[in-house]
Design a protein around this nucleic acid. Sequence first.
DNA 1: CGGCATTTTGACAATCGTCAATCAGTGTGG
DNA 2: CCACACTGATTGACGATTGTCAAAATGCCG
Lengths: 248, 248
Amino acid sequence: MPNPLVLKLENLVRLSAPERDVLERLTRDAVHVGPGQDLVREGDALPSVLIVLQGYACRYKLLPDARRQITAYLIPGDFSGLHLPFPDRMDCSVGTLSACLVARVPHATMSALMEEHPGIASAMRRAAFADEAVLNEWVVNIGRRTSYERLAHLFYELLIRHRAVGLAHGDGYDFPLTQADLGDTMALSTVHVNRTLQALRSDGLIGLERKRLDVLDVERLKSSGMFNPNYLYFDPDRRQTERSAATV
Amino acid sequence: MPNPLVLKLENLVRLSAPERDVLERLTRDAVHVGPGQDLVREGDALPSVLIVLQGYACRYKLLPDARRQITAYLIPGDFSGLHLPFPDRMDCSVGTLSACLVARVPHATMSALMEEHPGIASAMRRAAFADEAVLNEWVVNIGRRTSYERLAHLFYELLIRHRAVGLAHGDGYDFPLTQADLGDTMALSTVHVNRTLQALRSDGLIGLERKRLDVLDVERLKSSGMFNPNYLYFDPDRRQTERSAATV
DNA sequence: CGGCATTTTGACAATCGTCAATCAGTGTGG
DNA sequence: CCACACTGATTGACGATTGTCAAAATGCCG
């Protein structure tokens, strides 16, 4: 099975065979974690770099009254906590949403490796930066789009991200989250997520059953979410937009 | 007049006198830019590193139908676009909200400087990371807080950030934005911003007039926004929270 | 003073959240 | 194999927050 971290990075940088080897060894001893488990909690000391190899994890924060906001999904190939020994402790929590396979790489190991392999270092930093661009887009999504647009946007983004790591099956991908998780992601109530999903389904944009999401009309989903691939640095469509923007 | 970039970085790293000198020279030839001007537009090639020395700038995105979402404020000492020659072009725009004084540092200059002064390099990277933590918190703020909490949280955050660069006057600071700008920041309509500001005022939490914001009750503003300083790496209060968290 | 941007108000509508109940799916133990 | 429990999905009724529209008031600047 191809290594999702290698696949993710290869969208951003050309890796040499030895570099790929190093990355595969890095993620060799990963552990299975059940769903709904915290990998790190806000306030904890900085953990190792967490690399997700299977399943969905997320970064999230809790408010004192238990409102939860998920600020990022970590799908296979995504990692968290690259920034070396700064700051002193976590400003948010990381937890699993589904059963996951997760590698923990100590910071010392990671920095030694990045020193020895500048290509990997560069790739990892670019990936971290690309993830920040996703966060930025999520602000726009949550702040300025309707519930319908929001979910359309999210499902399209996830399609591209799954494709980038070879985990899309046609236009579909695994989606094992509950509607409550979706609500905490897109800042909607569970009930409203449910109603909006029904609208997306009855408009023929998506199918969602048995923990699998199928995009039934890729173009219409993309435009319904007002999706602009500008921010997805690993999306092949991005270059095309660039060219057309240059022409204007 | 003390250099806001130096002040900002000194919250994160101890700088040597020569390092401070280098930074001051770096920001010496800055240009004045009027309010409402774009410094870079989404899709443009990567510009120089932009360092704000006076005024409010912001990062923002526009949707096709002109909805706008501001995703970050750049106040004096803040910068944008540190990430070297990646990606190829901007995924969001940067513009001024008020009249600003802005330094543009070419990437070549910046990377040479960072190579020669690892202390500065480390400080700048930490600052960039700290800014990402702010973005993360904004997702929570916009997603999970009411309009009242949202504005309280923002005004408290800005107080801490202004203090960090020596620009708070007592518990007040410059705030030259319009209510429309505030709405595009916190994902509220202008009308609702107005109503919420009136509530904050009549509760005695803030005063806001003649482009100046005064926090009238710091503690109550902080708790109204459910403010947790965990994410503000330059907030002196942060360490205290850390200690008490460790005791629990 | 006149013009323009911004703030403020009021009335009304739409989106979205809450509450509470029901339905469906899954897994367990007898 | 079925009863049972539990989680998650779905529905309906209702209410609250927030947005929209439009107008009036205020403030700012030349």
